[in-house]
């Protein structure tokens, strides 16, 4: 229901204390951190699953036989760089320059796409080599852990695209600033998760 005409809303907004608005954005950020905790537990459960099943090869290939060092190192490098570029985007927020923000967000999203592309090629090669999700419990756990991270990254890219559109349309407002901050926070989180995947799955796998 519309209670007031546009002018009236403007008028009311002016007399409304601005602490309240700050409050709202801080509430949203806090909630997002809580969400990240739940997502962390989701990944922790998947890591636990991987650890429980990682030696159950069912006579199939082992991690050492499958993982290719150049590919996962490249994936790691790309994702770490994208985390850095998303950080640069938030620096752009401070300067109130939408072009810098959009620019770095686009770079981040492209790096994200490259990461996903590499992961898809990695998976298809593995399947072609006969290491599919149904081959062994180890591979089931591997695909689901790494794949869940990949799905998260893909969702992050879509989310970033939506944020870019909004900055392009409305410039840097409180709303878009908050949205940019949140999406980059998410991106850093995915980066941290990847570092664990890199260590627990790939490094320990090839050792």
């Amino acid at each position: 229901m519309e209670y007031a005409s546009k002018n009236k809303i403007k008028h009311i907004e002016d007399e409304h204390d601005h602490d309240h608005e700050h409050d709202e954005s801080s509430i949203k950020t806090f909630g997002f951190w809580v969400f990240l905790i739940t997502d962390l537990i989701l990944f922790a459960t998947l890591f636990a699953t991987y650890t429980v099943l990682r030696t159950r090869y069912n006579g199939g290939p082992t991690g050492e036989e499958l993982f290719e060092i150049p590919i996962f190192v490249a994936e790691t490098f790309i994702l770490l760089t994208s985390s850095f570029t998303s950080g640069l985007a938030t620096l752009g927020l401070k300067r109130k320059n939408p072009k810098i923000v959009i620019g770095w967000l686009i770079v981040t999203a492209i790096l994200g796409l490259a990461f996903i592309g590499l992961e898809i090629t990695e998976f298809t090669t593995l399947v072609e080599e006969g290491a599919a999700i149904s081959t062994s419990a180890f591979l089931s756990a591997f695909y689901v852990l790494v794949g869940t991270h990949g799905i998260h990254v893909s969702a992050g890219i879509i989310w970033m695209a939506s944020t870019i559109i909004q900055i392009a349309r409305y410039g840097i407002t409180k709303d878009t600033e908050h949205k940019t901050y949140i999406v980059t926070l998410y991106w850093h989180f995915l980066d941290v998760v990847w570092i664990f995947i890199f260590t627990v799955v790939y490094l320990i796998g090839v050792m």
Binding site: T49, R56, Y57, N58, I133, S134, T135, A137, S140, V144
Partner: peptide
Amino acid sequence: LLFVDRFFGASFFTLDGGGNPMY
């Protein structure tokens, strides 16, 4: 994971394929 087992034929909790139902 249960759905991945059922749909993709993975073996998290199956009897065969190295699955671990107790988990």
